[in-house]
């Protein structure tokens, strides 16, 4: 599994990650970011794409 961490002090809820990996990242009804803390290994490319497009570079990925 891949562990996903978002630095919520940095996150400004731009939502760019949502477009790259909607299975993991969502904007809720208040336009605030919600995300799953784990995802299967085959999602690595999408998750890296989501981390790449984060304006605040607040998304961190690690292997479990």
């Amino acid at each position: 599994m891949i562990k996903i961490t978002v630095d919520m002090d940095k996150c400004q809820h731009y939502g760019q990650c949502v477009f790259e990996a909607p299975e993991v990242f969502q904007l809720n009804a208040d336009d605030k970011l919600e995300y799953k803390a784990e995802a299967p290994d085959d999602m690595l490319a999408d998750l890296e794409a989501a981390a790449d497009v984060c304006p605040m570079q607040a998304i961190f990925l690690s292997k479990e």
């Binding site: 809820h13 939502g15 949502v18 477009f19 904007l27 336009d31």
Partner: peptide, 11 residues
């Protein structure tokens, strides 16, 4: 400014 879901819907 803000209103993220609406802005994102223009993609």
């Amino acid at each position: 400014i803000g209103m993220r879901s609406l802005v994102q819907s223009y993609r």
